[in-house]
């Protein structure tokens, strides 16, 4: 099993039914980390089963998430880092 984190952005006009959308995202396979109400975004993760004779449908790619009505975009989480404390330029 490998894990991947996503950011789901909800459309302005659908923000009033954010809870409903969160529930649909969960049924579509998203394990919700946080609901960011002020931003209208949801962070979460999906589990990807390593395909061992299993069907490709086991892959929790973000397609089912993007298909949820009211979702504008589903983006893979990026990493950020700063230099170590002793670096001259940080």
């Amino acid at each position: 099993m490998s894990e991947k984190e996503w950011i789901v952005t909800v459309d302005d006009q659908d923000l009033h039914r954010l809870d409903e959308i969160v529930a649909e995202l969960e049924s579509a396979g998203l394990e919700v980390i946080r609901v960011l109400r002020s931003l209208g975004q949801v962070t979460g993760r999906t589990q990807t089963k390593d395909a061992v004779g299993g069907s490709a449908a086991e892959d929790s790619a973000p397609e089912p998430l993007a298909a949820v009505s009211g979702v504008v975009s589903v983006d893979a989480v990026q990493q950020y880092s700063i230099k170590p404390p002793d670096a001259e330029v940080q």
């Binding site: 931003l39 989480v77 990026q78 990493q79 700063i82 230099k83």
Partner: peptide, 15 residues
């Protein structure tokens, strides 16, 4: 503490 983070933490911070 190691200086790294991700969108998950940064967007939560903005929110």
């Amino acid at each position: 503490d190691d200086g790294t983070g991700s969108d998950t933490s940064i967007l939560a911070g903005i929110d």
